[in-house]
Nucleic acid binder design. Structure first.
Lengths: 147, 147
DNA sequence: CGCTTATTGACACAGGCTCTCAATAGCCGT
DNA sequence: ACGGCTATTGAGAGCCTGTGTCAATAAGCG
């Protein structure tokens, strides 16, 4: 048993490492914080939230950029403000976003537009479809109750 | 017949007017330029492109903001840079975007995830779905040919 | 045709994000 | 375990997109 607690690399940590990126303490902190948030967060919000270690704001930006590139985070435009980032599993999935509290749930490929729809779009537009995006917005269970 | 050519208000011009906004020459130029582009454009791009009249960059920003609010334009985050805007019809629709040249085609509600899918998502997540977004990405007819 | 007032253009300014660079710490080989 | 190579970090300066201000202009209305 080592003196310092063993830090178990999470699935996403391992993924970064497999791609040749170093698994540093700041990166781990940022990823963990983003994932635990379970909703879109700005770099500033994450920066404030990371208390265990003194992580520079620039590193937060750099890591979020990296995660987005690798597919572990999704970037979203904020109207007239900061960009927001959401933790994402690496599998193909879609999001269900609460319009009230911002909580995000992932749903898997079972809900994707099926092959027939894609073919119909191709027929209608003469495009050769390679990829799609899709989000649902509404109220989560917790926010449906009171006004 | 008036001396100066009559400027026919387009459908979107009329819509702005109906909402109580004034139909100014700069606005018309910006809307026309955005619509003719047929793809996502940044404020700077539009500003450079408008040659017929000296339109201030601030006005381009203001008009794009206005269009987005009214539903005549869609705003998109650009990775690490400027926001882009796309002309949109006011009806519910989705986009098919060429990954090569950026051309965008609108498709109508016929291709939306149907009622059954929405209900299934609700059942799976306990959310109450109100709205969805969906885009398709691929190669347009012109870009499918050569490498 | 003139009045009222939304809109414009120019510029100053704010804030988000990036770049730079020396210092630090992963990772790998031994 | 240890040392070296080098990716990564943190701090802060700086860039650049986007907004606020304000006098001048012009759209819309009677």
């Amino acid at each position: 048993m080592p003196r310092t607690a063993t830090i178990t690399p999470t699935e996403e940590d391992a993924r970064l490492q497999a791609l040749g990126y170093r698994l540093t303490a700041p990166r781990r902190a940022i990823i963990a914080t983003l994932r635990e948030a379970g909703r879109f967060c700005t770099a500033t919000q994450l920066h404030e939230r990371i208390t265990a270690r003194d992580v520079g704001l620039a590193s937060v930006y750099r890591t979020l950029e990296l995660l987005a590139e690798v597919g572990l985070a999704e970037r979203r435009a904020e109207v007239g403000g900061e960009a927001s980032f959401l933790y994402c599993s690496p599998r193909h999935h879609h999001h269900v976003i609460c319009t009230d509290c911002g909580t995000v749930r992932e749903i898997d490929a079972a809900f994707c537009p099926d092959e027939a729809v894609t073919r119909a779009v191709e027929a209608a537009t003469d495009f050769q479809i390679a990829r799609h995006t899709m989000d649902f917005h509404g109220l989560c269970a917790d926010c449906q109750g009171g006004g």
